[in-house]
Amino acid sequence: MHALVVDDSRAMRSLLRQILGRLGIDVAEAADGRAAIDAVVAGPLPDVALVDWHMPVMDGLELVTEMRRHKEWRHMAIMMVTTESEHENMVRALLAGANEYLIKPFSADAVLEKLSLLGLAPEATPASDHQGGEYLP
């Protein structure tokens, strides 16, 4: 499984890389929304993008909107990982096409449980086959 971690903080990217790495997930990193788009274009398509909100160049909400313009990326789940927890903003992100929402700070267990909700847990239940998943809003 492949994950793309998009966050302007190297410390946060490192932390998520460790948590995902322990679950056997390959991790690519991008420091802003524009770099994330470039990384997905360069391939391979991640199974999930973990996206911070407040970033320079292109923020998380713009990134989600942009990613969902690409119909060929519909199999990629998007999870916001951010301190941004104003109700209205959470709804905006979900409407733009984010599939899950993780509020900072979070425990490692919470990451795993959120991946399970997306059908992406490494030891996923047999019923959930993420290969067929479509994550368009």
Binding site: H54, T83, K104
Partner: peptide, 15 residues
Amino acid sequence: AVGELVNVVGGNIKS
């Protein structure tokens, strides 16, 4: 690391 710490604390205060 301290930048992310103040980002998380500040972000939660903002919320």
